[in-house]
Amino acid sequence: MVQIIEKRQLTPITSLYRVDAPLIAKAARAGQFVIVRVREGGERIPLTITEYDRETGLLTIVVQEVGATTRRLGELGVGDHILDMVGPLGEAPEIPSGGHIVGVGGGFGSAALLCLMKELRERGEKTTVIIGAREKSLLILADELAEVTDNLEICTDDGSAGFKGFVTERLQQMIDGSPPGYPDFVISIGPMPMMRAVEKTTAAARVPCTASLDPLMVDGTGMCGGCRVTVGGEVKFACVDGPFFDAHTVDFDEAVARSKMYVKEEQKAADCQRSAHEEEAA
């Protein structure tokens, strides 16, 4: 059981949690993730580590309510417990030193970038972060990111904040020479369509790019193989070999298809949860 020490609502469906998980906080590295289970009979789902504090033993995670399990998490508040949490899982990405490193985050991918950018800042790297959302109110952790990067570039689809357009359009401008300048290495974390678009943009300019994949997982230790992705023609397990892979060699078609395996079931689980709630309320 892991206790929630602090909770902050970032958007109507996204919350940040600081939890008391000293063993994980002590071992964590930027880019790794945890697996949680919220209740008996609940699913195991992976969540990226947003921050860790080895001294206080606190671990920060950001959760977007998209399915039954994340909605259940959303119902928890300060003092409540998360039933199970295990980690840190996966490997920290290898990011080359020197040059201009650009982190691109879409939606709640920004949360995963925070930890990495902080580590790159400590390493003394020159960095830029591009984050994007549909509109201003859906942007998360902009202030926190601004503190750990040299340049924060904000993009919104509707122009309600920063650059009007997609993160890839802003990235393309930089590739074309607009300040803060040409990216030597890109880290891409976000929804699959965004990561795919970032891959295309960087591939055309031959910029190396690593993407953080979050396929379906059960155990997170390499035991089930459910998270397999094809990278450079080879089958890899995202839980132990990833979650970061060379974006230019990832089979995104397959990864997208696999991510949709349980779309119907996810809906069913959410419906079941809703009707249980209504019964409770009645």
Partner: peptide, 9 residues
């Protein structure tokens, strides 16, 4: 499933 939330096809 769905009482237990992990699906299987």
């Amino acid at each position: 499933f769905p009482r237990s939330e992990t699906p299987l096809k």
